[in-house]
Computed example of a mutant assay.
Amino acid sequence: MEYRMEELLPVVGKLVEKFTSKESSSVTFETAQMLMEGVIYCIEQCFPASGTALEAAKKMPAEEAYRIGYGLAVEKVYKAKAVYDGLIVDFQDYGCRNYRETVREGMPAFFLKYDAKFQPQNHILTLDYPSLGQHENLCGINLIYEYLCDIALEKRILECFDREAVQMLLKRTEEYHDILYMENLCSLVLLRAVGCMIAGANGAGLELSLKDIEEIRGFFKGNTKEQIENKVAVYMRIIIEKAKLAPQASHFQGLVHEYAVRIYNALEDDGLKGVFL
């Protein structure tokens, strides 16, 4: 972004007037910093990955880029709300408190409190329930929108399995570790589903027995970490395709490597039961 400070200050100055309702021309350093960050955040909305759009934005006066960027941020709020409205229909938390508190309780608070004008960079929520997406460099409405898209996608995977089976799997996991489950539900469910497919067990019901664990052990016995990863990838692809989410398969790719590492280490330590049961 090629804007000098003297180009940005007039934009911030006008925002200060609105922030103070023209009752003062000065604000605290922290407030000024917040407003400057907000201006920069909105201007950055004019800078998508497209090089053509980037060059066009560079030629705009800072005030125009801010105005357009602010409009884009507001538009994304409406897009995020539409995603959320679809997500919350028939939403099941499966007894996962972290999932419920973030999606059902936290998100409505975000839409009530988000301030696109004075603090668009603040996404307000800590998003304690993790999605499978990687969005470390995002903040504000950009992060919330991508996060909700993640959760909506992952919800479709969870709906492929019996609700009570997911609830029971979560309950047993929490009882085994004697702590509330704070990780991603899809991560838990898909690992069990892969195990069920390998053992020829009830996939939808997510049921595995000790005999099934021996089947899984034999399936991976003597494999390298890379071979295990290739085998897991095959079954993950089958599950994703059955869920009719093949175009979004890359979203779940990180789990393949994670599962392979866990399985490989468990084979070495004779701990496969702990991974799958």
Rank of each mutant, 00 (worst) to 15 (best):
G205L: 11
Q121D: 02
Y41E: 00
L267N: 07
G69T: 03
L127K: 12
L190I: 07
M182W: 09
K211F: 07
E214N: 14
M34A: 14
N223C: 14
K171W: 07
V16I: 15
G95R: 11
E23H: 15
E214R: 15
V39E: 04
I238V: 14
E75S: 14
V256C: 11
T20Q: 01
A246N: 03
H177V: 03
L267C: 10
E23C: 04
R104N: 08
Y176N: 10
E105M: 11
L35P: 03
N265V: 00
N223F: 13
K81P: 02
V103C: 04
Y181F: 12
A73R: 06
R97K: 13
N98K: 04
K22S: 15
I68N: 00
S131L: 04
S187T: 09
I239P: 01
F161K: 07
G205W: 10
N184D: 02
L255S: 07
I141A: 10
E2L: 04
V39K: 02
R100Y: 15
T20R: 01
F111W: 13
E241I: 01
V189Q: 03
A165S: 15
I239H: 00
A32Q: 05
I43K: 00
D85W: 00
P247W: 04
Q33D: 01
K242M: 12
F110Y: 15
Q33K: 15
K58A: 04
L138M: 09
A260K: 02
H257A: 08
I88C: 06
E55D: 05
A246K: 09
F118Y: 12
R4P: 01
K117V: 12
M5W: 10
E75V: 00
M197R: 14
F252T: 07
E23R: 15
E17K: 09
C186M: 02
E75R: 12
L208Y: 11
E174C: 08
V194C: 07
L272N: 04
G13D: 03
K244R: 13
I239C: 06
V256L: 07
A266E: 00
G69P: 11
L72I: 15
A266K: 05
P61G: 08
F91C: 11
E241Q: 14
Y264H: 15
Q92N: 12
E37P: 00
L132V: 10
E214D: 10
Q121T: 01
P108T: 09
N98G: 04
A62K: 08
M107L: 13
C160P: 01
E258T: 14
E241F: 04
Y78D: 11
L169E: 05
V261D: 11
M60Y: 02
D90E: 14
L153Q: 08
L190R: 01
E268F: 12
Q45Y: 14
I88A: 10
L143M: 06
L190N: 05
V256N: 12
R104K: 15
E37F: 03
G95F: 08
T224N: 07
R262Q: 12
V194E: 01
A57N: 01
V166L: 07
A152E: 02
E175V: 06
Q134R: 15
G71K: 14
E136M: 10
S250A: 14
M197F: 06
L158Y: 03
A32S: 06
M5A: 11
K58Q: 08
P48F: 14
Y66N: 02
L169Q: 06
